[in-house]
Computed example of a mutant assay.
Amino acid sequence: MAVFCEAVADGLLLALSLALLGWGAEGQGNGRGMKEVSGSATVNLGQDRDIWRPLIHTTVNLSEITSIKSTFQLRTFDPEGVIFYGDTKNGDDWFVLSLKDGIPLMQISKEDVLVSVAGGPKLDDGKWHTLELSNQGKFVILEVDGTSGLVVGTQSKQPEEVLSGGLRLALGGILIDKEKMIVQFEPQMDGCVREGSWLNLSSPWETEVEELWPCYQNIQPGSYFAGTGFAIFNTSGFPVDADDGLKIELVGDFSQMNGTIFSIKSPRHEWTVALVADKNTNVVSLTLGQEKTLMLNSLNKLVIIFQRELLQVFQDEPGETPFSVSLGNLDVLTTWTEGRLAVGGLLGEGEDSVGSHFLTGCLEKIQVQGKDLDLDLAVKHMSISPHSCPA
Rank of each mutant, 00 (worst) to 15 (best):
G172A: 13
F84Y: 12
S134M: 13
S156Y: 09
L74N: 03
A118F: 06
W94R: 08
D92Y: 04
E179S: 14
S202W: 10
G102K: 11
G153I: 06
E161I: 14
L163I: 02
G81W: 06
V117G: 02
R168M: 08
S156R: 10
W94I: 03
L97D: 01
V115C: 08
S197M: 14
G119Q: 10
F139E: 12
L169F: 06
A118L: 06
V113S: 09
P204M: 02
S203C: 12
K127Y: 11
E80D: 14
F77A: 06
G166I: 05
P79F: 11
V162M: 06
L142R: 03
G120A: 04
T76I: 13
L123S: 00
D125V: 05
N90M: 08
Q155V: 08
E179T: 10
N90P: 00
I141N: 05
W198T: 13
D101H: 08
E161N: 09
K122Y: 04
F77R: 01
E186V: 11
F139A: 12
G166Y: 01
K127H: 10
E179V: 07
V152C: 02
I141H: 00
N135W: 07
I108E: 03
N200V: 05
D190M: 12
T88L: 12
L97S: 08
L150V: 04
K178S: 12
G126Y: 07
G166V: 09
Q188W: 15
V113P: 01
W94D: 12
G146V: 05
T130H: 03
D92T: 12
M106N: 00
V96Q: 06
V115K: 01
E111A: 15
M181K: 05
S148L: 09
L175M: 14
L123M: 06
G149F: 05
G137C: 05
K138C: 08
L123I: 05
L105C: 11
W94M: 08
A118K: 14
G165L: 06
P79K: 13
L167M: 14
D190N: 15
Q184F: 03
V193P: 02
K89H: 08
W205K: 01
L74P: 03
P79H: 10
T88Y: 00
E208P: 05
L167R: 02
D87T: 07
Q136V: 15
A170D: 07
E111H: 14
S197R: 15
V151H: 00
E111G: 08
I182E: 11
E132T: 15
E206H: 07
R194F: 11
T130S: 07
G102T: 12
T88V: 15
L105Y: 05
G191R: 04
T154Q: 05
L114T: 01
L142P: 00
